[in-house]
């Protein structure tokens, strides 16, 4: 077992045991914090497929996070007001069913990622960063100017959506859903990285011209990766909205894209559990330092600076060694 695999196992055990301890100690706030960390980790796992595997520095992933969130918000708000989303040409009603909302969030963010990726991936480098940022900001300003769904104030959902057989208002049961989804997506991301598709994507990151000579279209590879990445981030957005029972334009903002990217870099870009480690640390710092000062982001900035300067592989890279493990 490699050191990275051992670290990953420790993270899984931590994510499994900490909420159980919090339940035993009657600390529901800790369970909610862990749930938030797990959801952000899920968004990070999504972005890490584009960033770590495909080398695509997207500053617009908040677009998919927000779309997932608003998919939940719009469907749930219509269900709670008993007003259909549309009546003509055919009737579309809201829903309070989590699985249905997830599917719609994944499809919506996937289609958006496909469209945004198809245009953005025609560029590279700083132009790609700027175009993805522009798309994210377009959706941000659109959500602000959309009064039907709260505009700048956002949209509150009074009761958390339902999951068959579970009481989702119970923090530990909602956490169980998030934990299972995160583990399933991590298994998927791990297999994707080892699949011929993932290997070719990794190779295209190193040299797009070289992979073309072995018959691989790097544009197509990257577009698929970007779309998958957007779908996972969209699912995280739907869960995040359900956790808070609130959606707002902030979910679309470039700061959200930046935060996801920052904790991936802190955890380890391209490392399977990099986003998990980064998200947990991010939430810990927000909770611990946020209590001391409103300017806790300064400390986060210092940490990011130290990692970028002295630990390029992020925390996992520093602890597990330079070699990227695929197990």
């Amino acid at each position: 077992m490699s050191r990275e695999t051992a670290l990953n196992a420790v993270m899984v055990m931590g994510l499994f045991l900490v909420p159980l301890w919090a339940l035993w100690a009657d600390e529901p706030f800790i369970i909610t914090l862990t749930t938030k960390a797990a959801i952000l980790a899920l968004a990070g796992v999504g972005l890490n497929i584009a960033l770590g595997l495909g080398g695509l520095v997207s500053l617009g992933h908040a677009a998919f996070f927000g779309l997932g969130g608003y998919a939940m918000g719009i469907l749930a708000s219509h269900a709670q007001s008993y007003a259909p989303i549309m009546e003509t040409p055919f009737l579309i009603e809201g829903t309070k069913s989590m699985p249905v909302i997830w599917v719609i969030a994944i499809i919506t963010s996937g289609l958006a990622a496909l469209a945004i990726g198809a245009l953005s991936l025609r560029t590279t480098g700083v132009y790609f960063i700027m175009i993805t940022l522009a798309f994210g900001q377009m959706l941000y300003f659109f959500s602000i100017s959309w009064p039907a769904y709260g505009g700048e104030d956002g949209l509150s959902i009074y009761v958390r959506n339902g999951f068959p057989g579970l009481n989702t208002l119970d923090p530990i049961q909602f956490y169980a859903i998030v934990f299972v989804i995160l583990m399933a997506v991590l298994v998927f991301a791990g297999r994707l990285a080892k699949s011929p598709f993932g290997l070719a994507l990794n190779a295209a990151r190193q040299s797009p011209e070289r992979v073309e000579t072995v018959g691989i279209t790097s544009y197509k590879l990257r577009l698929i990766a970007f779309t998958i990445s957007g779908m996972i981030t969209g699912l995280a957005g739907a869960l995040f909205a359900d956790l808070n029972r609130f959606v707002s334009p902030t979910m679309f903002s470039w700061q959200t894209s930046g935060e996801i990217m920052v904790f991936i870099i802190i955890g380890g870009v391209g490392r399977l559990f990099g986003p998990v480690v980064g998200a947990v640390l991010f939430i810990l710092l927000e909770h611990l330092l946020g209590g001391l000062s409103d300017y806790w982001h300064v400390y986060l900035g210092v940490l990011l600076l130290l990692i970028v300067l002295f630990a390029r592989g992020g925390l996992i890279g520093t602890l597990a060694g330079k070699e990227i493990s695929h197990d």
Binding site: L199, N202, S207, T213, V214, G215, I216, I324
Partner: peptide, 28 residues
Amino acid sequence: AHLGIGLVPEGRRCFTNLTVEENLLAAA
């Protein structure tokens, strides 16, 4: 390349961040 032209480029140019097996499977 899809039509059947396989190139071994000058200067080798392997994908250095992949293992030997992964280099081979990426192109398979």
